[in-house]
């Protein structure tokens, strides 16, 4: 059996920008909760330098191709780039097909680029549980820019705002229904909107549709989201997109001392507490055998999951209150 390197070694490798260490670190974050925590703890002081871009949008909008072009443009400017491309895990088999990188594959041998595909492993909201940690790894490894591509299943993929600093929402003309999906789910989170495949005749209409929606939505925001056109296939409009991203980055930096970074830290802390608490309760219930007991009830359709959760929590907290009183 070949033992994996100790976490400390891997963390050291990450900080030195060693590619294999980066890859191993992300695997640890995906697979091994306790080691993941140790790893993140040791790289955390070295994070916060990368600019993190979230890219989301409905299927068929050309996100991956666009990301390929964005990477190229950053590389031309001498910046290094990391990418996390998320695809869904099948709820039935637990397997996943990860094919986003094909659009970026010719960049895979560029030592200034690191691309990692990631399956959601049934985490909801368009990213994976490990995405956040993986971004930190790429950040700590010295990538100037880290791009996260969400699943792009056309559902509300809003988790990305917890990770990304600049959120780019991509859509394409002729996807009619999908514009509705954007309206319903991800309109609020976009800092920059991109109408890709702009060489199509109905591109301008899509731009106007989005602009109209934005006017309704963003009256009181300090950053006014804009709508840009790109043709990812030829790269047209990509340098303007980068300029806009950079502009937004500058805006964020100016806002830095104010709420933005604090807000992010706040939500990160809240998330971390939530996850810890929830998991420890679940573990406890499992060890008590309660979890299995009620799981059976759900399977037999005697109770629904929400009621079970409520009942269990009530019991648990009553117990704890009692403990305190004793």
């Amino acid at each position: 059996m070949k033992p994996l390197l100790p976490v400390g070694e891997i963390a050291k490798g990450v900080l030195a920008g060693d590619r294999r260490s980066v890859a191993k670190a992300i695997t640890i974050i995906e697979n091994n909760a306790s080691k993941a925590q140790e790893l993140i703890a040791s790289i955390y002081p070295h994070t916060g330098k990368a600019h993190i871009i979230g890219i989301t949008g409905p299927p068929g909008s050309g996100k991956s191709t666009l990301i390929g072009k964005i990477i190229r443009e950053y590389r031309r400017k001498g910046k290094t780039v990391g990418v996390i491309a998320v695809d869904p895990t099948s709820p039935f088999t637990g397997g996943a097909f990860l094919g986003d990188r094909i659009r970026m594959q010719e960049l895979s041998t560029d030592q200034g680029v690191f691309i990692r595909s990631m399956a959601t492993r049934n985490y909801l909201g368009g990213i994976a549980r490990a995405t956040k940690g993986a971004v930190k790894v790429l950040d700590a490894a010295g990538k100037d820019t880290v791009i996260v591509e969400t699943v792009g299943a056309g559902q509300s993929e809003v988790e990305i705002i917890k990770i990304g600093q600049t959120i780019v929402v991509v859509c394409a003309p002729g996807l009619g229904d999908e514009i509705q999906a954007i309206k319903a789910g991800i309109m609020e989170i976009g800092d920059i909107f991109v109408v890709n495949k702009a060489d199509r005749e109905d591109a301008n209409k899509a731009v106007m549709d989005i602009q109209a929606m934005l006017q309704l939505n963003n009256k009181e925001k300090k950053w006014r989201p804009t709508v840009l056109k790109t043709t990812a296939l030829t790269g047209e409009g990509v340098s303007q997109l980068i300029e806009k991203i950079e502009e937004h980055k500058l805006f964020l930096e100016q806002e830095l001392e104010r709420n933005t970074s604090r807000g992010k830290a706040e939500s990160e802390l809240a998330e971390a507490i939530k996850e810890k608490v929830a998991n420890s309760i679940i573990e406890e219930l499992k060890s008590e055998g309660k979890f299995e007991e009620f799981l059976q009830k759900i399977l037999e359709k005697k109770m629904d999951p929400a009621s079970v959760a409520e009942k269990l929590l009530n019991e648990k907290f009553r117990k704890q209150v009692q403990k305190c009183q004793n």
Partner: peptide, 10 residues
Amino acid sequence: YGEYKELIVI
């Protein structure tokens, strides 16, 4: 013209 990249569907 650029080069075509296939859309992968399995």
